[in-house]
Design a protein around this nucleic acid. Sequence first.
DNA 1: GGAAATAAGTCAATATGACTGACGTAAATT
DNA 2: AATTTACGTCAGTCATATTGACTTATTTCC
Lengths: 175, 175
Amino acid sequence: MTDVNFSLPVDRPSPARPAPPDVPIDMIELLFFAYRDFTSDPDAALAEFGFGRAHHRVLHFVSRNPGLRVTDLLGILSITKQSLARVLKQLVEEDYILQEPGPVDRRERLLFATERGHALALRLMRLQAERIRSALADLPQEGREAARVFLYNMIDPDQRADVAHLIGHRKDQAP
Amino acid sequence: MTDVNFSLPVDRPSPARPAPPDVPIDMIELLFFAYRDFTSDPDAALAEFGFGRAHHRVLHFVSRNPGLRVTDLLGILSITKQSLARVLKQLVEEDYILQEPGPVDRRERLLFATERGHALALRLMRLQAERIRSALADLPQEGREAARVFLYNMIDPDQRADVAHLIGHRKDQAP
DNA sequence: GGAAATAAGTCAATATGACTGACGTAAATT
DNA sequence: AATTTACGTCAGTCATATTGACTTATTTCC
């Protein structure tokens, strides 16, 4: 057989399908890749402790908001009580978080990070902070603010006030 | 009983613990909330089809990059072959994706979205596009570019070239 | 004071998305 | 001919999440 290769020129991966011009695909994909790598640093550190991403989120928000209630945490994380239960239990058992009955409403169990808890939370925060710092380094001050406004506006409108309150800004529109 | 309440003023959740001034906690938390809500729209739509977030990611990148190889996809998603297998199999069985042997190297199985596949991918993209559009709406053109640069710089430096190539810009630094 | 609502915990069953390690097959490369 | 590569697959496991039902304590409402 002559076996001459008449197949089309190799151009793999082939060009992306034309997308509707009004769809900001670059931003969709950049958000995916940015978040993928944003979570990779703490994930690696957490593995040492036998913890996962879920533990990180719980520990972070409790550390940042001492006295948080379980219900608040469920709202913040958008997960169910059962999903939280195991993770929280582990963090309490291993002395990263402690629970205290609410001084006013004793049905509540307020959550606090222990010293260990704060220390781990801070370590993880620093990893993420470093990545963010270098990502913002190139940008002028207005650019940094634009990035913050963009992220803030990505949040569901009816959740923005809660988030702003949690983060410490009390504005209706991001700063 | 007199039952007068002498407990401290209710100010729950109590103020956040002071953080080191060099840690951009607002950005860390905003990224979490932004991504949480960014994924919530497609998640809801996918539930109708019995698909999850993993299916979305696979379908999206195949739809955008027809002829993608399995290996490429593993690199993009940062997952293992075994994790991909079940999800990809379902998408092939339900006629959203089809596989073809590579015309040059017949060991390869190139991935293509079917019409159904493109249609679903586009539907999901539009959901995310709408959220992004409104998040960028307030910003001046330089602000939008700043947001893009920020996301791009959040990616691991050694991955940026691949991502830029995939997205369609071939610059070393984000545009 | 009694009923209803709320905060939290718990049990059981299940789904999804990910992992490791080992092995097989076909095709390409050396 | 031997090795490497691309892909698929089997088996087992783990982490994170789900739903639904039920219990307990406590507060609030009438």
